[in-house]
Amino acid sequence: MISVCDLMHRGVLYCYPDDSAKVIAEMMATHQIRSVAVMDESGEVWGSVSMLDLLRFYGKDLEQTRADEIMRPYRIEVDPQWPLEEAITLMKKHKIEHLLIIDPHAGPKRPVGILTDFDIVRHMSDIKVGDFEQMLKIPSP
């Protein structure tokens, strides 16, 4: 049985609650990601900002908008040892595209990774790492 920790990304890209929305937009564009965690200086997670949350502020003054004004508060606890089905049920129920993964051994509200819907699609596509490289390979003339 496949569990959350088999597919999740280790590590979380995060910003601080008083960072501006512009910082978040730059992080998303630079790292080509769709969500950023909001954490305080102690490493405790407050919430997350998805691309859609950020797009609501399109055309507005991003420098004057703080991360804690646009974030969705973190409420969903996901353990890395959970079966994947449970994580998918949560994603469908809450209509979200990413889950922050909290390791109980690392302490409460301390994220150790992130699981996105695209990670699950990659698993479902059944493309092995070697095959994937082969598909991307441009044939030499």
């Binding site: 089905e85 994603m91 469908k92 595209e97 996105t116 819907d117 695209f118 699950i120 699609v121």
Partner: peptide, 8 residues
Amino acid sequence: PRSILKAF
């Protein structure tokens, strides 16, 4: 990607 999850 979320539509694909429906078929999991």
